[in-house]
Amino acid sequence: MGVNMKAILLDNVKKVYHGRRGEVAALDGVSLSVERGEFVAIQGPSGSGKSTLLLLCGAMLRPTSGAVAVLEQKIGALSSAERARFRARNVGFVFQLFHLAPYLTVLENTLLSNGAGTGRQRRAEATALLERLGLGDRVRHKPAELSAGERQRTAMARALIGRPPLILADEPTGNLDPQNASQIIDILAEYHQQGGTVLLVTHQPGVSERAQRVIRLERGKIAG
């Protein structure tokens, strides 16, 4: 993972959703730069555009206008298939609601990441990672058999397994108690210390304190 290069660069980005009740500008002229190896938290009230910003950075959305470059790759220029390949190689996602496949075990969910592969070596790596995250005795369990903290740690393992240079976390501690929330942030901090870039959306001040920088979004604009 390189340093002194832009991990994320947004230039006057606007994202408009077209709904039944008219247009909604989720992001309205946002410019933002995140260096590689940086740990950035995004805060803001509901509907301020935090999740949209995260999904744009994860090449899940295209901007309505403006430019988005992630790891020096212009997202707007990529086709849907190219963006999928880009995500598989470069981005790890963590969601508030974990989004684990209910029919897969902890180990299988970890290996679900398209960049992870399923070979014997990958399985060994995944097992080691799960053990490191305190899930060594849960590898064969299904999500329904896990606590919320264990589910989120599984989702973290899935995000980390392909060693992507960028982790995008959308309220990863939103459904967790303080102890589990702290564990998740510790994992993210450890990843960051190893050179990874983290862009974290959170409502919780205690969580954003762990980041190097906090960006505040309000009504689709950067407020500070």
């Binding site: 995500r87 598989a88 996602f93 609601l97 989004h99 496949a101 679900l112 990441s113 398209n114 960049g115």
Partner: peptide, 16 residues
Amino acid sequence: RTEIGLLRALGYGSWK
């Protein structure tokens, strides 16, 4: 729906 969204987020292409 969510699972499909997740797979897409994890880099699964349309054909998969």
